[in-house]
Design a binder for these strands. Structure first.
Length: 186
DNA sequence: CCCTGATTCGC
DNA sequence: GCGAATCAGG
């Protein structure tokens, strides 16, 4: 893959929106986040002082370069509406009994979730680690599957999408973009 | 351990 | 110019 005009444009746009390099890379496809970062730098739009981390790293090359200071740019994180919570699959039982007072998400309210997201979830459940309550950690998807009152109950357990309590797929159904809402007119 | 961006340097 | 490897912070 090469940096076509379009791709560069997408890069600029997303970077400007505050998307992470990995997200951009994923969106573009065919490139790694390193490639994205590299390009960003070459384009000269590497503002966004993360935390002065890598910015100050005198390695083996003292570069007496004069850095043109870019004007401070207010960060603008993505604004997404957290909408839903885990539905209890399509199992017969409906008990909402939680095993041991644990991080089970709040009650859902049968939301409209994109079929695609649901399909994705279904797939994921196949390869889920099916971990138990006690196996949950900070980085395991806490999406419950099945009926807590039965043996047929487990947590997804896949790696979470950083920060989020769920893996990518489950985040997809738990956090709905605001676009999913249809506006009603009256 | 997961993520993030920054930098270097061989290609 | 490109980006993997590496570094460094969170």
């Amino acid at each position: 893959m090469s940096w076509t005009d379009e791709r560069v444009e997408t890069l600029k746009k997303m970077w400007g929106e505050g998307q992470s390099a990995s997200q951009i890379a994923k969106e573009l496809g065919g490139v790694t986040r390193n490639a994205v970062i590299g390009k960003v730098h070459r384009l000269g739009l590497s503002n966004r002082a993360t935390s002065g981390a890598a910015a100050a790293k005198p390695e083996t090359k003292p570069k007496p370069e004069a850095k043109p200071k870019a004007p401070p740019k207010p960060e603008k994180p993505e604004m997404k509406t957290e909408a839903a919570a885990p539905p209890r699959s399509n199992l017969p039982a409906r008990k909402q009994i939680i095993p041991a007072g644990q991080p089970l998400p709040p009650q859902p309210s049968a939301n409209e979730i994109s079929p695609e997201a649901l399909a994705k979830v279904n797939e994921v459940e196949k390869k889920a680690k099916k971990i138990g309550l006690m196996d949950l950690t900070e980085r395991t998807c806490k999406w419950p599957v099945g009926d807590p009152a039965t043996e047929d109950f487990w947590f997804c357990g896949l790696p979470v999408k950083q920060g989020k309590p769920y893996c990518e797929a489950h985040v997809g159904v738990a956090f709905q973009p605001m676009s999913a809402r249809r506006d009603r007119r009256r």
